[in-house]
Structures are given as structure tokens and as C-alpha cells.
Computed example of a mutant assay.
Amino acid sequence: MISSINPSIKAIAVLIPGILLSFTFDVFTPLSYFIFILFVTFTMGDISVIKWLKFFSPFFLVALSFAWMTILYTNQTFSYGEVMFTLWRFEITTGSILTGTSLALRSLCFVALSLLFALTTDSTKFMLSLMQQCKVPPKITYGILAGYRFLPLFQQELQILRQAHRIRGVGRTKGLKGKINQFRRYAIPLLANGIRKAERVAIAMESKGFTGDTDRTHYHQMTIEKKDWIFFSFIVGGFIIIVVFSYNLGYLNIFGKRV
């Protein structure tokens, strides 16, 4: 269901809670919204749990590192409460633990929202939606789309270069100087092939009548339907409801101050 939502509406629906979450410093609000995002992802997104975990697990480790560093180096505004324990010369307070946990949960919310958008959105439809609904110039959208399409080709060409070097007896080198020379051996052919491919794409687009004008017709028409606004209201409204509950329960914390 989520894959059929207009990409521009989906992007705005994901962006608004992501921005508003950055102002919260309590644990209840990001934790509740993270659970809400997981519910939406796995009940409405048709996303494999294993595939989602492969993308999510590295960011989980990053969030833990954020939390740990925040707990150790919390400033005076957020290091309130009793001292729980002392680690070397660092005094770990209840406030620093809550602040670090909140930062980790906010980071996980950002990752979950990003995965919700990335794993359910077609890149071509997203660019078309930016052109038709957001009025982004075609030169920018088609340029981004062409660059995105080149990434798998560059990866394939890099693998071919490595195999060609191994056949000729040029293996991986050690040391800083060797790494620089190896990077040069790979970068120059890839750059040359990239320039040639870009020229071919530019010539092909000009031969098909592409001028970059915004006043143009589209083979695939992207429209905004009722279901798009329902999804927008559901994602943003869910965040607002959680904030209201957090406020009524006395958990809501904005920049270290309880509201």
C-alpha cells in the first residue's frame, strides 16, 4: 500500500515528524513514535523483516555510540538528577542517561522513517513526482536520475578493472603510497568511462528533444489522490497524538525543559 503513495507526499509526511522529533529530549516521545513507525512499516509497507534488519542494524550500532558519547559528555543543562555511578572521572547522572537514550531513539526514528521511504519508493516515480507536483526543473531531476542509474554501472566496471589487474599480475598493494597508486589506477579509467557515458546520455536526450523546459508533457502522469492525503494525515497525525499523550503524561521535554 505504501508503495502506491505519491512519492512527494510520502517524502513530506516523513520529513515533518523527522524535523519535529529533533526538538524532543525525552524518552517516551521518540520511543512511542519508533514503535508506531515499525507498525506502519511491517503492516502497510510489504517489507521483508530480514531485508529491513540488514539496513537497520548498522545504524543501531551508530545510535548506541551516540548514546554512549552523549552520556559521557553531557553538558550541565542535561546532566540533572542524581549521580548513578562514576566511570573514571565521569559522573553518570539520571539526566545524562535519559538524554543519551533520547538521542539514540531519535536517531533510530530518523533511520526508520528513511527506510520506510527508501524501501517503498521507486526512484523514477520520485523524480517524476518532484517535476510534476513540486515543480523541480527537469534538468535537476533527470540529472539526479541519470547519476543514480550510473552507480550500478560504476560498481560493475570497478569489478572488471580489479579482475583485469589481477590477470596482469597487479594485486592489492600495502601502505599509504600503494593505496594512493591503486586509487589512481582505478579512478582514471572510471572517470574517463563516466565522461564518455555522460556525453552519450546528453546526446541521446538532445536527440529525443529534451531541452529542460518545465512546460512539457509526461508519459507517466503522477497525481495526488485521496489515499495520499490519508497516509500523510496518518503519519503526521500519529506523531501529533503521541506528542499530546507525552504532554498530558508529563514526559514531553523540549530542549531539556519539561513542557
Rank of each mutant, 00 (worst) to 15 (best):
G45M: 12
Q133H: 14
T120F: 08
H218T: 05
P58C: 04
L61E: 11
M69W: 13
T217K: 15
F255N: 05
L105H: 13
S65L: 14
F255D: 06
S102A: 12
T211I: 12
S123H: 13
L153C: 10
S4C: 09
S3G: 06
W229A: 08
F245W: 01
T214D: 11
D228W: 07
V259Y: 12
G178W: 13
Y219I: 10
L103W: 14
L153K: 15
C109R: 02
I71D: 00
N253C: 08
A192T: 11
Q76S: 14
N193I: 03
S114E: 12
G147W: 05
Q182N: 10
F36P: 00
I195Q: 05
R166T: 07
R166S: 15
L20E: 13
T217S: 15
I97K: 04
M127C: 08
I5P: 02
M127T: 12
C134V: 14
A192R: 13
N181K: 15
I12G: 07
Y148Q: 10
T141G: 02
T70P: 04
I144Q: 01
L115S: 00
S129N: 12
Y148W: 05
Q159H: 06
S129A: 07
I92E: 01
P7Q: 10
L128Y: 00
L15N: 04
W88T: 08
A164W: 03
L130H: 05
A187I: 14
G194I: 04
F150C: 03
K177L: 15
K177F: 08
L116K: 00
K125C: 05
F126G: 02
G81Y: 13
F39R: 15
V170C: 13
A164D: 05
K197Y: 06
V14M: 10
I203G: 10
K226N: 03
K208T: 06
K54I: 09
T24Q: 03
V83L: 05
V136S: 08
I188V: 13
S22G: 08
K54E: 00
I160L: 02
L161Y: 00
L252K: 05
F183C: 08
I71Y: 01
L128P: 00
T41R: 03
K179M: 05
D228V: 06
G238H: 10
E199V: 11
V40Q: 11
A198C: 10
F28W: 14
P17D: 11
N248K: 15
W52Y: 04
K226L: 05
F25S: 04
Y186A: 03
N75P: 05
H220E: 02
F42W: 11
K135E: 06
S96G: 09
T43E: 09
V201P: 01
A202E: 04
M1V: 14
L103I: 07
R216P: 00
